[in-house]
């Protein structure tokens, strides 16, 4: 997995200053980034899938973090985006905090038991690690964030 993590997560997967004004706006903006990078085939459909998942239960996991995600036919290739937003966004979070850091996960239906899912699972687990979250929140350059993710995603 190690040899592939730098292919899986590169600076393309990180968005600083997303500039979103709401949860919906954030998901829309991130979907557009995914489309531009060729990971999804349709912004609106993908967005709908993510919002559906959000309706089932919030992905605002607390500590200003959210992990919206979708496993859908509109995802061409499994990937993730990490975005930071200066303004805290209302996300109905578990601890009531507004969200400033978003991990968006897009999973292709074709992927099953592969290394990408494994990396997403590992990163999800790391979100329970206070040191990891602190480091991600503090990091303010793409390079720095990438370094933290790549170190942990192994």
């Amino acid at each position: 997995m190690n040899e592939n993590i730098s292919e899986f997560i590169s600076e393309k997967n990180i968005v600083l200053n997303l500039g979103a004004s709401s949860q919906l706006d954030a998901i829309q903006k991130l979907a557009r980034v995914l489309e531009k990078n060729g990971y999804i085939d349709n912004v609106l459909d993908f967005q709908k899938d993510v919002l559906e998942r959000e309706k089932a239960s919030t992905t605002g996991i607390g500590n200003e973090m959210a992990i919206p995600h979708s496993k859908s036919e509109h995802v061409r290739q499994t990937t993730m985006l990490l975005a930071k937003n200066d303004v805290g966004l209302e996300w109905n979070s578990l601890d009531g905090s507004s969200v400033k850091c978003i991990f968006l996960m897009a999973v292709s239906l074709k992927d099953k038991g592969d290394e990408h899912l494994k990396m997403l699972a590992t990163l999800s687990g790391e979100l329970m690690d206070d040191d990891f979250v602190r480091a991600i929140k503090k990091a303010d350059s793409k390079k720095e964030i990438l370094k933290i993710l790549q170190k942990k995603g192994k």
């Binding site: 998942r53 089932a56 992905t59 996991i61 992990i67 995600h69 979708s70 496993k71 996960m105 999973v107 899912l117 997403l120 699972a121 590992t122 999800s124 687990g125 790391e126 979100l127 329970m128 690690d129």
Partner: peptide
């Protein structure tokens, strides 16, 4: 969890922690 992508693994990590 339903999607089996994130919460399954976050919950596992937090139980262990």
């Amino acid at each position: 969890c339903i999607a089996g992508i994130a919460h399954t693994y976050m919950a596992a990590a937090n139980l262990k922690k």
